[in-house]
């Protein structure tokens, strides 16, 4: 290598900041995304709460909590399997990491399937975006928007988990990539903790 090239290489290395503020760049990026996305959900849930509070004939269509309880259990459990996957990846145990990531993805698919089944039941009962048999039409629009936004995140997360899992196993991605995907997955799980009480538990039909 010539002297000129070596000098240029050294300048280039000095110009690249690998770890701004001593924070790994990928982790910083996903955290910024999470904060921004949390505010998107906060705005949606706030709007939902406002509509629910300000509308007199808000429907309370949910007869039981079995489905939503199972969905919650699945999502919280998927957070545990994800963290076990991250831990295995950090320890360099590729087979275990891949296995845990794929279990997490399967749990995500199960969650999405239950969610779609619930949507299907509600649509069967006549709840659409613009009308429902019980009360204000705003119920359907706000319910499908909030839960749909969350379902979109779960679907995106499942795709990301499968892609990252396969590429990690193939050696194209490393443990940091698994960790970053895990941060997103935990976020999706935590958002559900706010969706459940607001959208489901406060709309239970308690036989009034």
């Amino acid at each position: 290598m010539s002297q000129a090239n070596m000098t240029m290489g050294a300048h280039h290395a000095a110009a690249v900041e690998p770890s701004p503020f001593a924070i790994p760049s990928k982790k910083l990026a996903i955290w910024l995304f999470i904060v921004a996305d949390a505010m998107t959900f906060a705005a949606c849930l706030l709007a939902y709460g406002y509509l629910r509070n300000a509308t007199a004939n808000w429907p309370t269509p949910f007869e039981g909590i079995t489905n939503v309880a199972i969905m919650t259990f699945i999502l919280v459990t998927s957070s545990l399997t994800m963290i076990l996957g991250i831990r295995a990846a950090k320890m360099g145990d590729k087979a275990a990491a891949f296995r845990w990531i794929m279990i997490t993805a399967l749990l995500g698919i199960a969650f999405a399937a239950l969610h779609l089944r619930e949507w299907s039941n509600l649509i069967g009962e006549g709840v659409t975006l613009f009308k429902n048999p019980w009360g204000t039409a705003l119920f359907g629009a706000s319910f499908y928007c909030v839960t749909g936004l969350h379902l979109l995140h779960v679907t995106g997360g499942v795709i990301a988990l499968i892609v990252v899992g396969l590429r990690y196993q193939g050696g194209r991605y490393n443990a940091d990539d698994v960790e970053v995907t895990g941060l997103y997955w935990h976020f999706v799980d935590l958002v559900w903790m706010f969706v459940v009480p607001l959208v489901y538990l406060l709309n239970l039909n308690l036989g009034k």
């Binding site: 690998p18 770890s19 001593a22 924070i23 790994p24 982790k27 991250i86 831990r87 950090k90 320890m91 360099g92 940091d176 960790e179």
Partner: peptide, 10 residues
């Protein structure tokens, strides 16, 4: 390069 914490020890 610092790549965050090592969770493997936990």
């Amino acid at each position: 390069m610092a790549q965050g914490n090592d969770y493997s020890s936990e």
